[in-house]
C-alpha cells in the first residue's frame, strides 16, 4: 500500500508500523468518576467497519511521525492521511 504522508508525499506502507483505531488518541480522564470503565472501553471496545476506518500508523522507518490515516477496509483505498499531532490538538488534547 502507499500512504500519502502529508509532509513527505507517497511512501510505501512497509516504512510504517500500524497501531490501531485512531480512537486511541482519545485517552480518558483518569480522574473521572467511572475512570476504570472508561479506560476499559477505550482499550478494549472497537468498531469494525467495512468501509472508512480512521487508524494510526507510525512512520518508523521514516520521519517518526504518527499519522491518522483514513482507509477503506474493503477496497484499501486511502482517503486521507494527517499528522496525528494535528488531529490530537484539534480534539483538544494538550498536556
Amino acid at each position: 500500500m502507499i500512504i500519502p504522508h502529508p509532509l513527505l508525499g507517497p511512501r510505501d506502507s512497509q516504512e510504517f508500523t500500524y497501531l490501531g483505531d485512531a480512537s486511541l488518541i482519545e485517552r480518558p480522564d483518569w480522574q473521572a468518576d467511572n475512570a476504570v470503565d472508561q479506560f476499559h472501553d477505550y482499550l478494549y471496545l472497537r468498531d469494525n467497519p467495512a468501509g472508512a476506518h480512521r487508524e494510526l500508523w507510525f512512520h518508523e522507518q521514516g520521519d517518526r511521525s504518527w499519522l491518522v490515516v483514513t482507509r477503506d477496509t474493503v477496497t484499501h483505498e486511502i482517503i486521507s492521511a494527517e499528522l496525528a499531532r494535528d488531529v490530537a490538538k484539534a480534539k483538544g488534547r494538550s498536556k
Binding site: L56, S65, L83, A88, K89, R93, K95
Partner: peptide, 19 residues
C-alpha cells in the same frame, strides 16, 4: 528499545501534543 521508543512518540504526539 524499539517498542518503547514508538510508544513514547505516540504519547508525545497523540496524547499530550502540547508538552
Amino acid at each position: 528499545a524499539v517498542g518503547v521508543y514508538r510508544h513514547m512518540e505516540f504519547c508525545r504526539q497523540c496524547l499530550w501534543p502540547d508538552m
